[in-house]
Simulated scan of single mutants.
Amino acid sequence: MNTKKYISIFISLILISITLQAKSGEADKLPVVIQELVPAPAVPAHNIVAKGGPKVIKVRMSITEKVITIDKQGTKFRVFAFNDSVPGPLIVAHVGDYIELTLVNPKKNNFEHNLDFHAATGALGGGGLTHILPGEAVILRWKATKPGVFVYHCAPGGAMVPWHVVKGMNGAVMVLPRDGLKDREGKPIKYDKAFYIGEQDFYLPKDDNGNYKEYIHPGDGFSDVLEVMKTLTPTHVVFNGSEGALEGDNALTAKVGETVMFIHAQANRDTRPHLIGGHGDYVWPNGSFNDPPRTNLETWFVPGGAAGAMVYKFRQPGTYVYLNHNLIEAFILGAKAEVKVTGKWNNDLMEQLMEPTRIAD
């Protein structure tokens, strides 16, 4: 009888048992929900107030490296995207839920990627546990302990961190309190629909003639783009990937009487959201749902590397403009959207008493 052999096997079995027990925890006993992620400005279907106890919310994101058009002049730029979308899709959970992410870096890609969740605790927000090369996948599970809206982004290390972020590799997570949102008196705040806006800054070099350079092949222009990034002056500041992405036929829509949540994320620069023609009825500028919302704001501040949320009930029909109220960035660089609202006009709120009329000199 080979005593040493059996002792070795016995020790191995004990180690395997210990490992399995270490991996087995509260999350393994919970029901599983597959969340269908949708491109911005859409938001995954969800309940404001949690139904039942905590759950494991499984999501899958694949990384895309592709060329997109970022302005109305047809300028092309190679971006990195989660689920083929800039910004990456919104993930929604409640406090106490677990988010289980499968992150895939397809073989056809050229760069290493990872994911840092500002909503998560430990290991650089998951960034230390999700590094994957082309052709690899990883699964990360983390517990949602803080209620609010939070940024996530790629953070592979060094200069690659800002480069990946300003190439579009960022998104947001919303973690709702299990009993829903409350005002400062503890009364419920509800909304009929939600829009998710990712504000993106791009930094494109120009040639000797003042035209934007286009870099089609992977890795091209890294040094040139880095030099523009060092000026801290973006050439484009846009909503949802490109200038005009949320205007005209792609405008957001609502009805008079509807209450709408706007989730606004900016992974890199400060921004000042404002709704022309409306207000922030309830606003969480820094994203924390643990704190009572501020009320009746005209403009609010979302610091770079954060997300904020606003709830507003539309009271008049018409086309509203939702923008970054740095008006240079909104009207010249592209950081604005339209909200087309239908319904009956209320003259008590606003009425034109005289049409434009020529007056005597």
Rank of each mutant, 00 (worst) to 15 (best):
N47W: 08
N47D: 15
K51Y: 05
K51A: 13
K51C: 00
G53D: 13
P54Y: 06
K55V: 02
K55F: 11
I57H: 06
I57Y: 11
K58N: 14
K58F: 02
M61V: 13
S62Q: 15
I63P: 01
V67I: 14
T69V: 15
T69W: 11
I70E: 00
D71V: 04
D71K: 01
K72R: 14
Q73V: 01
G74Q: 13
T75S: 08
F77P: 00
D84Y: 05
V86D: 01
G88S: 12
I91Q: 02
V92Y: 01
A93T: 07
H94Y: 10
V95E: 14
G96S: 12
D97I: 05
Y98F: 15
I99L: 13
I99W: 08
L101Q: 07
L101N: 03
T102I: 11
T102K: 15
L103F: 15
V104F: 05
V104A: 02
K107R: 11
K107L: 14
K108D: 13
K108M: 09
N109P: 02
N110H: 15
N110V: 03
E112Y: 08
H113P: 00
N114F: 04
L115G: 00
F117R: 07
H118F: 12
A119H: 03
T121P: 00
T121E: 14
G122Q: 06
A123P: 00
A123Q: 13
A123M: 10
L124I: 08
G125N: 09
G127I: 11
L129A: 12
I132W: 12
G135N: 10
G135W: 09
E136S: 05
E136W: 03
E136K: 14
A137Q: 15
V138A: 12
I139M: 13
L140M: 09
W142L: 03
A144P: 04
V149M: 05
V149L: 10
V149R: 01
V149I: 15
H153V: 06
A155R: 08
A155M: 10
A155S: 14
M160W: 15
V161W: 05
V161S: 15
P162V: 08
H164F: 11
K167W: 05
K167L: 08
G168D: 03
G168K: 02
M169Q: 06
M169S: 11
N170G: 09
N170I: 00
M174F: 07
D179Y: 10
D179L: 10
K182I: 04
R184H: 12
E185N: 14
I189R: 02
I189Y: 02
D192N: 14
D192E: 09
K193Y: 06
A194I: 03
F195R: 03
